[in-house]
């Protein structure tokens, strides 16, 4: 068996959940997990888009309880490990315990890129449950390389086995990614990973750049299904990696079949970089605000672009979806005042 150059974590069933408003059913999960598993993907992440416990008014209710979906995934996976995501403040340690019992082997514990110290309870709990714990710093464009190192060292000290940065707003240039990954790889004892989004059409390029700087974990989703303009498409990442001579251990053709024949037909909209998606990357706004802001714009008769730009100005972070309604109401009020 040849060794692989980086490990691929597919998040179609977690980040992809945003793009279908968390309406996954068990049969979808089974087909996607089987496809990813057969293609050789090493880790498959499943949860509500906002992590375990994310089903809510604020983020959208899941059609099917996520733990039922996770149980279905654990049942059908052959070689791939099943992972979950948890955001402290939304999910709790009890959730980790429950999914641990279902067979989840990897827990990604995600915080905003300056708030790593809220993850201590959860990283330690994941380790106690025998899981691999991955520290996951979101909205990484909002912190400097040095600042990220400081936060990453905290997660490493809690026992994290791997450290990820997420470009949750799809706002980073290749240079931004290189500087951050380089700093992390030099400072940490644990492996580094990158989770990219495509709002600025940089996801695949940024992932390859991250690999060149020493990242040995990369994220993708099938057909790019995910928050904002979408994620790094797993099948494209695999194909491009092959062209670069990078050994991924996955079969790009099987991933293309999965994306084309199973995932695309279930997508309510294809992942394109339209104005709203581009603004997310341009203004540095959390990708999962896309569909919520579209609904608020329709409901209150204001522009989605204006909502997103104002959210960027307010420096809201992941999880503050309630502020979309707040901004929409304020814009509607201002417009009404101007008309009088």
């Amino acid at each position: 068996m040849t060794t692989i150059d980086y490990r691929l974590i597919d998040s179609t069933l977690r980040d992809g959940s945003h793009a279908i408003s968390h309406q996954y059913y068990a049969e979808d999960v089974i087909r996607i997990v089987k496809g990813l598993d057969a293609a050789g993907v090493q880790v498959i992440e499943i949860a509500h888009g906002d992590g375990l416990g994310g089903s809510s008014f604020n983020y959208g209710f899941s059609a099917v309880p996520e733990k039922e979906l996770i149980a279905a995934a654990c049942d059908v996976t052959d070689q791939a490990k099943i992972a979950c995501l948890l955001l402290p403040g939304i999910g709790i340690v009890d959730d980790l315990r429950e999914v641990g019992a279902l067979g989840v082997k990897v827990a990604r514990i995600a915080t905003h890129c300056t708030e790593a110290d809220i993850s201590e309870q959860h990283i330690k709990a994941a380790k106690e449950l025998g899981m691999e714990a991955i520290g996951f710093l979101m909205m990484a464009h909002m912190n400097s390389p040095e600042g990220l190192v400081e936060q990453a060292l905290l997660m490493q000290s809690y026992g994290a086995d791997t450290l990820y940065i997420a470009d949750s707003a799809g706002a980073m240039t290749t240079e931004d990614v290189r500087r951050r990954v380089n700093a992390l790889v030099s400072a940490l004892e644990i492996p580094v990973g990158v989770h990219a989004h495509n709002n600025l059409s940089m996801a695949v390029a940024n992932s390859i750049a991250a690999y060149e700087e020493g990242a040995v974990n990369l994220d993708g989703t099938s057909a790019g299904l995910g928050a904002g303009a979408g994620n790094c498409p797993t099948e494209i990442l695999a194909a491009v990696s092959t062209k670069y001579g990078i050994n991924t251990g996955v079969d790009p053709l099987k991933l293309m079949d999965l994306a084309e024949e199973i995932v695309r037909p279930m997508m309510p909209r294809q992942q394109v970089i339209d104005r709203a998606g581009l603004i997310l990357g341009y203004a540095g706004v959390y990708g999962s605000f896309l569909l919520h802001s579209q609904r608020a714009a329709e409901r209150y008769g204001v522009s989605q672009a204006e909502i997103l730009l104002e959210l960027g100005r307010r420096k809201v972070v992941g999880g503050q979806e309630d502020m979309i309604i707040d901004v929409a109401l304020e814009l509607a009020r201002k417009h009404a005042e101007q008309e009088v």
Binding site: G89, H112, E115, V317, G319, Q320
Partner: peptide, 13 residues
């Protein structure tokens, strides 16, 4: 359900 979010913006929100 209860959710808490920390926001590091400067000046503080």
């Amino acid at each position: 359900k209860a959710i808490i979010v920390l926001n590091p913006a400067e000046p503080p929100i």
